[in-house]
């Protein structure tokens, strides 16, 4: 078990994350202190949650580019409700956020399933639609901290057993995903559908429905993150989380989730997100321009994909050899 883990991509990634933390620590003592690392984790929580949703989608050989727009739209809606009716309990707003996210995810999923439109096209469209709706409902206006109720803003920051609720939610989602991916038929179906859609059909798995479920789950998580984002940063506007969908895809790719589908682990997605999170938190401390951060995450993506491509290619060769027998 341990020997196998040491050879896995997750181990390499974990080592990279630790090395990165230690490297920053040598320059800025205190970075590796537990309290600071907890802060880094908290900062990365939303990325982790979205990366897990994206992972479910990518496993089925699809992609969801609309996650950040979904997040921004639900965030705006719950912020507007809170601003106009501060009496609505936070828990109801969270439920609403998840519900809205689920509906938006289902919309993506239905288009992919029933109309057979390529996912990248569907979600590129809904990315724009969801973002456009924010402008329509808000007229481009911002909702600022002073318009939000205290409870609305306090929930994700509330401390529980030494960690903010935001971190606990991320941990809870990770736990749920470990079970979903590893211990349920749906999780297994994600791998089957992405690994070999044709074979999945012959095995009695509905490819379209499985993809629909992946989009729905990802949408629900994006909705949840919508609330978490606007309450944590205490602001909602049209461009909230603009471009964040690419960070999410990057986290997945760095985490070893194959863009071709069917390969990837929960641990990989979490570590991929943490890797980006550490870079994001370390560079400002080091006084390095945020543009370097973009270059570094970009380089990390390319390196990770090169790794994946190598791993998958050697597998392909074995299959081809046996396929040649058929001649």
């Amino acid at each position: 078990m341990i020997a196998k883990f040491l050879k896995s991509r997750e181990a390499i990634l974990l080592a990279a994350v630790i090395a990165l933390i230690l490297l920053v620590e040598t320059r800025f003592a205190g970075f590796a202190a537990p309290s600071n690392l907890a802060g880094v984790f908290n900062d990365t929580s939303i990325l982790i949650i979205l990366a897990l949703g994206q992972m479910a989608v990518i496993l089925t050989k699809c992609i969801d580019l609309s996650l950040a727009s979904n997040l921004a739209l639900t965030g705006m809606v719950v912020a507007m409700i809170n601003a106009t009716a501060p009496g609505v309990p936070v828990i109801a707003l969270i439920a609403l956020a998840i519900g809205m996210g689920v509906v938006m995810g289902m919309f993506n999923g239905i288009l992919v399933w029933k109309l057979d439109i390529p996912p990248i096209v569907v979600t590129l469209g809904t990315l724009t639609i969801y973002r456009g709706v924010i402008f329509l409902i808000s007229d481009g206006a911002w909702i600022n901290a002073h318009e939000m109720s205290g409870g609305f803003k306090a929930f994700p920051r509330a401390e529980f057993l030494g960690l903010p609720v935001l971190s606990w939610i991320a941990l809870l989602i990770v736990g749920l995903f470990v079970v979903l991916i590893g211990r349920t038929g749906l999780g297994r179906a994600f791998y089957a559908v992405g690994g070999n859609p044709h074979a999945a059909v012959y095995t009695g798995i509905s490819v379209g429905f499985t993809r629909f479920m992946a989009f729905t789950i990802a949408g629900g998580l994006a909705g949840l993150c919508g609330y978490l984002w606007v309450s944590r940063y205490a602001v909602a506007y049209v461009d909230v989380a603009g471009g964040f969908e690419l960070d999410v895809v990057a986290a997945c790719v760095i985490g070893g989730i194959s863009i071709a589908g069917g390969i990837g682990t929960v641990g990989g997605a979490v570590l991929g997100a943490l890797f980006l999170g550490v870079i994001k938190n370390a560079l400002p401390v080091a006084g390095i321009s945020p543009f370097w951060q973009l270059a570094i995450s970009g380089a990390a993506i390319i390196i990770a994909v090169a790794f994946n491509a190598r791993g998958e290619r050697s597998k392909g060769r074995v299959i081809l050899k046996s396929a040649e027998h058929a001649q």
């Binding site: 690994g195 070999n196 095995t203 299959i319």
Partner: peptide, 17 residues
């Protein structure tokens, strides 16, 4: 290759699918 086995999954998961 195309319709039968899911090559990225281990043997036992293919069998129980």
């Amino acid at each position: 290759g195309k319709q039968g086995a899911i090559t990225a999954l281990p043997i036992f998961q293919n069998v129980t699918l």
